[in-house]
Amino acid sequence: MNGKQSYSRRFFLKTSGALAALAAIPASVKSLYTEVRNFIVSPRQTIPLSVTINKKALKLTVDTRTTLLDLLRENLQLTGTKKGCDHGQCGACTVHLNGERVLSCLTLAATLPGKEVTTIEGLANGDQLHPMQQAFIECDGFQCGYCTPGQIMSAVACVNEGHTGSVAEIKEFMSGNLCRCGAYNGIVASIQKVAG
């Protein structure tokens, strides 16, 4: 009985002391933790970004690591542009930058200030589809549809560039857009239809 009492008193003193010490620590521990974390994992860096997307001028703040593709899909909810391989091999993410076709997955958002982006959402004129969109519907230019936004953006540029002289030329200048369903014949027919 006596032994148990002295043990309890010592236990109380020890634990209350430890708790008091712990209560004093957090601020310094927290700053140490932040310092160590920043040393091991460098903190994210952001920059302001002024860019025009589908004729809308936007003022944003982005992580420097953000690609145009992720900016469109994750930050701006413009999910028409698709993420296929994310490594520049499939063309599903094709958009227009200052009127030229580029891969949004390999374009850092930080490089965009002063430039104009057009995505598949910016192609139609209100409810009036772009002639290329209409042609893809009429010529069966797609099956599952996943590569289609990239195909259409690339096809519009292909016509603008004037690379529609023959089926072989169209195929060569559309080779950056893969279609795993194999809708290539319909895609070529769509481009021929628009090129006239």
Partner: peptide
Amino acid sequence: GASPQIRNM
């Protein structure tokens, strides 16, 4: 080399 999109970049 590459594709039209990549050559533009």
